[in-house]
Design a binder for these strands. Structure first.
Lengths: 130, 130
DNA sequence: ACCTAATTACGAAATATTTCGTAGAACTTC
DNA sequence: GAAGTTCTACGAAATATTTCGTAATTAGGT
């Protein structure tokens, strides 16, 4: 059984929850409304479905339910990365990384940060078989 | 107008076309069948839809049509990357790259390759504003 | 208690994607 | 040239996702 990735609408909800912490439907809907038109019950329904799917958990102790994600942001990112990696890059992480950094506007600061990270990775592999 | 990403089924077709070059429905279907059960007319229909969408072009000069992709693999990879970047990584390429290289089994050879690439990128930015 | 506002539950329409059956045309073989 | 095979076109069912309207419930204010 491989992990499933959230749908687009689900990911939008998760992004708010990861940024703001446990929230009500009202709070989520207000955040999403800043980006695009979306009805309250639409957001509600998505979050109810996510709860059934096991993506969210909710506290029903007060009338206004409070939802929180059951997956860590980094785990979800990894799952989505893996899916992209396998479906579009033939499993080659280096191709993907070079595509990510290639022509686009990654800042120099970011490139420096990545290089530092990469050096760490290489350092940790001293002695590994190649 | 931002570019749209192919669906999962469409991407599977594209992957074969990019690897094998222009192909018939029969050829594509046989490749896909090695991975999973899929009916001939299912593949046909997907490819017909892709043609209407402008993802594929077909040569109808012989009875058995020959299809080819209208997008380069690298362009499609970039479009899909950008979507993931914005939807799941808040636009931060460095977070995405570190997630891609983080715990998983990228080989040392790949890491070296990426570092070389990164050095080139940094070299090309000598004098850019930071 | 009554009215209003906010909330949840639920069904269902709208849209998108995937799957496949059937019909008819075009080619092959005997 | 009849029979069988291969192909395309097309409709439609099956599935997944997104959207929203309506009804019922609860809370708060007066």
């Amino acid at each position: 059984m491989s992990k499933s990735t959230p749908t687009d609408a689900e990911l939008e909800v998760l992004n708010v929850l990861w940024a703001k912490g446990p929230s009500t439907v009202r709070e989520i809907n207000e955040m999403l409304s800043q980006e695009k038109e979306v009805g309250y019950t639409t957001t509600l329904k998505i979050m109810q479905i996510m709860t059934v799917k096991g993506l969210l958990e909710r506290d029903e102790s007060s009338r206004t339910h409070v939802y929180k994600p059951l997956m860590k942001e980094s785990d979800t990112q990894r799952t989505m990365m893996d899916k992209l990696l396998n479906s579009a890059f033939g499993g080659s992480a280096s191709k993907l990384v070079m595509q990510a950094l290639g022509n686009n506007k990654t800042t120099k600061a970011e490139l420096d940060e990545i290089r530092k990270f990469l050096d760490d990775q290489l350092e940790n592999r001293k002695g590994d078989r190649e």
